[in-house]
Design a protein around this nucleic acid. Structure first.
Lengths: 204, 204
DNA sequence: TTGATTTACTGAACACTGTTCATTAATTTC
DNA sequence: GAAATTAATGAACAGTGTTCAGTAAATCAA
């Protein structure tokens, strides 16, 4: 009976259609200005229909948040395998992370700042997407330590601290708090911060 | 003519009354769940009245955001004058910053993460409250450099990087992203990060 | 082919949100 | 006491996420 198969296909197609509309609106107008009614208007369905395909608004943006992590992996973390030296890999990973944030500020906000998509986690102790990315960082730091770097440091602790620094730079920027740094540096302050962080790490 | 004086006083009293209600609700239920109508209900005035005393919701929360900075200064930065050694002062300041965030997560969110209060800046290039705090940090780092520490580093750049690290730790926590660190460390991970950061700085 | 059943979708309704503004009430001035 | 100023109201506007009774179409069984 192929009818059920077709129905299933159609259901997935409309779900993907909703997601595409949500993504387009989100990347154009941001999270706050993307409403269920906007999405419904765009795909020419009634608002109620959205709820037949997604539990609520958070579920939609959780899906987009997952997309963000896929993009980060594909665009920035994939190439890390080609960098053999652990410390070089750490540098490349940090740089890629900052590049991703610069190129996709809205996705970054959704992935690491906005609380809504986290509400859609079935198990709130288990944030797979973030865990995957963090584990890679811990691995890289671990490899550095095994090479004799970062004496006296614990891999997870140091990974967390490096992540914090990078995350801090990005959020200071995307949440409009970088006006405190002198005007000449302001628009590339994350790069400066990155260089400074590497300097700090090199002497450890 | 004392009538104008009294009227002025009454106006300021109601303004303060509105602010108190807003503060109470905000600290109890957070930014998102505090509405103009909530505030109006609490002080037993109509919603329209609020707009006779504040331009809009952002203006109210900009005022609370300012309060947060006063609190940070009084509670955590005031005592720094007693710490004479520059590096010790840098450590004390960082620790105070993290303490403030832990004790006042909602205020922190308003001061450094939520974009709304920034919309109420008359000149968006000039964020006085943040600037004041950042300048103190730059001063402290500067004093360390003058003492011979942090060779090859620029004061503002390093201050920004340290701030980023601390800010990153706080926001990872308050925006629910610290679930990626192993369970045993999770609830005091900012302290661990702080120690790690100090270790990094000590070798520079 | 017809009738019963399942499925898909609608759009009005609910309880909210920030904000505005004509109207009303009180106070102050002349 | 009348006029003018000031303060406060609350309904109205345009929006939000979400639900659900009702409708229409598609599928199934006889």
């Amino acid at each position: 009976m192929g009818i059920k198969d077709r129905k299933q296909r159609e259901k997935e197609q409309l779900q993907e259609h909703i997601l595409k509309a949500a993504r387009d609106l989100f990347l154009e107008k941001g999270f706050e200005d993307t409403s269920i009614r906007n999405i419904a208007d765009k795909i020419e369905y009634s608002p109620g229909t959205i709820y037949l395909y997604f539990k609520d608004k958070d579920a939609i943006f959780h899906e987009l948040h997952k997309e963000g992590f896929q993009l980060l992996k594909q665009d920035k973390f994939q190439v890390l395998h080609t960098v053999t030296d652990p410390f070089e890999r750490l540098i490349a990973m940090s740089k890629g992370y900052l590049e991703f944030a610069k190129e996709n500020p809205d996705y970054y906000d959704l992935m690491f700042v906005i609380t809504n998509p986290m509400e859609a986690l079935e198990d709130k102790e288990c944030w797979q997407e973030g865990q995957g990315a963090f584990d890679i960082l811990v691995q890289v730091v671990s490899a550095c330590i095994q090479e004799g770097r970062f004496e006296g440091h614990n891999a997870e602790n140091l990974a967390y601290t490096i992540w914090s620094a990078l995350h801090g730079m990005v959020t200071i920027d995307i949440r409009g708090r970088c006006v405190v740094v002198s005007e000449g540096k302001r628009d590339h302050i994350a790069s400066i911060g990155f260089e400074t962080l590497i300097m700090l790490l090199e002497k450890n």
